[in-house]
Design a protein around this nucleic acid. Structure first.
Lengths: 147, 147
DNA sequence: CCAAACTGGTTTCATTTGTAACCATCGAAA
DNA sequence: TTTCGATGGTTACAAATGAAACCAGTTTGG
């Protein structure tokens, strides 16, 4: 092993990135082809579908998106009438976001597809490998995020 | 477990993406702060440092970059005089890329930093967890890449 | 030979993204 | 209260990206 050479193909940051990029690109076809959603829009839909009502800040925290991404995604989903904003009673800076019927319908349609996608991906692995990836990812999350 | 809800926080594509994004963002500080490189530029530098001489197409394959990214990164590194192009003898469409002394020097400076970064990251995990992430990532690569 | 299909690489254009500045509101401290 | 620093969210601007068109130059099949 040459000490002064970095083997890109086995460098973890690169491998993780490439992996995530491939998976994400593949998965994005589902929501892009189907509804023309961007990734931030999909995450917003998904977050609201999962939790019911959230503020933009909460959305950003839950789905690891910068606030500008959230802002734009919310604006677009609102334009589609997939969500509505309700001003907070006490703090007029805050808006509570909720999916409309149409938004909820889209969400409900997507959920099984997302689960199927994940299932198919994991289905290509041995049981041990599945356990390994889950354990490894969780460990890295803990090591990094901490919070 | 509600069947009609998707829990984003445990959805593998999302977790992978967030993980890769965090790691990559953290690592990018090293080459960005140090030399103002973009990720494609760093990968190009890294590829050439590792292999010595490559064509743009080979670079794209090795580091999973779209050809436009490669083209731009190569142009920028050339502008910095970190690499040179040599036309292929037999096929005049092809150019062989090689790092200059300056490029090589930058590469050599980066390698230990990259290794230290990876080492530090993995150092935060238990031995078992390290084994798990490596095994899991390899398994997914195999499941996907196939090629 | 020659046209058509293909390949290496660059450029153009529209879209996405990140940074920073910004606006409005809120809370704490003077 | 009034002021000042934080906070929720949007916007403006520049840089990064992807898709598709493009320009050589090469190969293949008739």
């Amino acid at each position: 092993m040459e000490q002064d050479i970095l083997e890109l193909e086995s460098f973890l940051p690169y491998r993780l990135y490439r992996l995530a990029d491939t998976v994400s690109r593949e998965f994005s076809k589902i929501y892009k082809d189907r509804h023309g959603l961007t990734r931030p829009e999909w995450r917003t839909l998904s977050g609201l579908g999962q939790r019911g009502t959230m503020t933009a800040t909460e959305l950003g925290e839950q789905s690891a998106m910068h606030k500008t991404k959230v802002s734009r995604a919310v604006a677009e989903l609102e334009r589609r009438r997939w969500l509505t904003r309700t001003p907070d009673e006490n703090d007029r800076r805050v808006e509570h976001l909720t999916l409309t019927k149409a938004g909820l319908a889209a969400y409900r349609e997507m959920v099984p597809l997302a689960k199927a996608f994940e299932g198919e991906l994991l289905g290509k692995l041995e049981a041990e490998e599945r356990a390994a990836i889950v354990k490894g990812v969780a460990a890295l999350e803990r090591a990094l995020g901490g919070k």
